[in-house]
Design a protein around this nucleic acid. Structure first.
Lengths: 256, 256
DNA sequence: GGACCAATGATTATCGATTATCGTGAGCGC
DNA sequence: GCGCTCACGATAATCGATAATCATTGGTCC
C-alpha cells in the first residue's frame, strides 16, 4: 500500500531529498543545486524545483530568488519557540478533545505509550521518537478539528526534525512515562490537569533539547565534525560544516 | 517602494490570481486551468504552476494530481475552527508579549484602534478590516517569537479571507472598540485579563461571522447568486456557483 | 595598495513542446 | 436498456533549451 499515487516524479524527488537531508548527506547550510540533483536522479529540473518548493513549505530548506535552496540550519531559539507554540496548540487540542474523545481513542493512546516504553527499554530511541510523534498526532486528531490539525502539522517538521529523544543524556524510559499524566488527565476529563501535564511535558522536552544542543552541537559547530556518511556537497560558507544528524532524527512521511 | 524584487514572474502571477480570487472573478469551487491563465497573462505555464502551488500552501486553492487547481470553498466549520485556533495563538502571543512589550508598541496599538474607529465611523468596513489585521499582526510581532508569527501568518488567509466585519448587521464601531480591552490588559500587564479579552474578542467575531454566513451565504448556496462581476470561469460541478465575495474581503499582502 | 568596474562562470527562472494521466462519452456485447 | 471497453479531448506533469540574474574574479585607475 504505497500510499496513493506513487508516481508524480516530484513527490519521489521530494522524498529522496528529504531522506538525504535527514541522513546528513546534505548537512545544514549546504546548498542544493537544482540542476545537479536533476542530473544525478536522471530527471528534469522541473520536478526537482517543485520538490524543493515543497520542502521549503515543510521548513527544511530555504529558498532565495536566483540564489537557490540551502538546508536550513537548525536554530536553537527557533526550535525552543516551536516547542512553546506546539505546547499551547496541544493544550487547546486536549481541551477540545476532552468532550468528545472516545474510549477507543484513549485506548490507542495507552497502547502508544506502551510502545514507547518498549522502544525505550530496548534502547531504540529512533523508534521511540516515531511513536512519540504518533501519540501527539493522535491527540490532535481526536479533536476532529481539521484546522488545528493542519496548523499542528505545519509546525511539526520544525519541532520534530531534531528530536531530543536521541540525546545520550536523556532517560528514554522517563521520557515515555512523561506521557502518562497527559493520558490520565484525559481519562479523568480534567482540562486543567491535562493542560498542566502537557506544558510540563514540553518543558521537560525543551530542557532536554537545550542540554543536547549546547552539548552535542556546539562541538560540531566548532569544527570537530567527523562525518561518516559520504558528504555530497560541503558548505563552503562561513563556519565549518556541521555534523550530519543521523540518529538524531525522526523520519516519517508527512504525506496526506 | 515596491517591496523587494518586484520581478520574479511567478510572484506577480500569484498576486494576480489572489486578487482575482478575492475579487470573485474565480468563485469558490471554480477551476483554475494552468494553461489558460498562462495564455491570458501572456506567460508560460511554469510560473502559473508555481503561483498555484504557493496559493495552495496559503490555503486558498486546492490542487489534485493530474486534475488541477480549484478555489477552495470556504467551509463554515473550518472558518470557525480557524477562529478558535487563532484566538489561542494570540492568547499565547499576549502572554509572551507582556513581559517585553515596549511603550511605543503599545502606543502603536492605540493608534491602530483609533484608525479602526475612524474607518468604522466613515463606514469604510474594508479599511477597518485591513487595520484590524494590522492590529493583531502587531500584537503577534511584539512577542519577538518568529515561530509564533510564522504559524499565525499561516493561519491568517483562512481566518481572514472572509472577514466578518463587512457583514451588514454588525456594528462596526463596536467591533473596533472590542480591541480596547485587549490593549488595556496589555498596559496593565495582566495576562489573565488579556487572555479573557482576546477570547471574548474572537467569540464575538465568530458569532458575527456565523450570523453573516447563515444569512448572506445560504442564499447564495441555494442558487440565488446574482453576480455583478465579470465571472471568468463558472464552476460546472455539482451545486450552483457561489456569489463572489467582493467587499466581504480584506485584501493585503501576505509578503515575506 | 585599495576601490571601482567589466567580463565570466554558475545557477535559477522562464519558455515552448512533448508526454502521461484522467474523465467522458460513443460504441458494443449481453 | 444496461454495463463494459476503448478511443478521444482536456489538462497536468515533465522535458530540453534559453534567458535572466547573481556572485566572483581579474584587471584597471586613482
Amino acid at each position: 500500500m504505497p500510499s496513493i499515487s506513487r508516481d508524480v516524479l516530484s513527490d519521489q524527488v521530494e522524498e529522496h531529498l528529504l531522506q538525504a537531508i535527514l541522513d546528513g548527506r546534505y548537512p545544514p547550510g549546504s546548498r542544493i543545486v537544482e540542476t545537479r540533483v536533476a542530473r544525478d536522479l536522471g530527471v528534469s529540473q522541473a520536478p526537482v524545483r517543485e520538490a524543493l518548493r515543497d520542502l521549503e513549505a515543510l521548513g527544511v530548506v530555504e529558498i532565495t530568488s536566483f540564489r537557490g535552496a540551502s538546508v536550513r540550519r537548525p536554530d536553537k531559539t527557533e526550535l525552543l519557540e516551536a516547542y512553546g507554540v506546539r505546547a499551547e496548540l496541544e493544550v487547546l487540542a486536549a481541551r477540545l478533545a476532552l468532550s468528545r474523545i472516545s474510549d477507543e481513542a484513549l485506548h490507542e493512546l495507552q497502547v502508544l505509550i506502551d510502545e514507547m516504553r518498549m522502544s525505550a527499554a530496548t534502547g531504540d530511541r529512533h523508534a521511540e521518537a516515531l511513536v512519540d510523534v504518533r501519540f501527539h498526532a493522535r491527540l490532535v486528531a481526536a479533536t476532529g478539528n481539521g484546522t488545528l490539525e493542519r496548523v499542528w502539522r505545519y509546525l511539526l517538521p520544525v519541532a520534530r526534525t531534531y528530536i531530543t529523544l536521541a540525546a545520550p543524556g536523556v532517560d528514554a524510559v522517563a521520557a515515555a512515562d512523561l506521557h502518562r499524566p497527559i493520558l490520565d488527565a484525559l481519562q479523568m476529563r480534567d482540562p486543567e490537569l491535562a493542560a498542566a501535564s502537557i506544558r510540563r511535558h514540553f518543558q521537560a522536552a525543551g530542557a532536554a533539547f537545550e542540554a543536547t544542543f549546547t552539548q552535542g552541537f556546539s562541538m560540531a559547530a566548532t569544527g570537530a565534525a567527523a562525518s561518516g556518511g559520504s558528504a555530497i556537497d560541503r558548505v563552503p560558507g562561513p563556519g565549518p560544516a556541521m555534523e550530519p544528524m543521523t540518529d538524531l532524527i525522526a523520519v516519517d512521511n508527512p504525506g496526506p
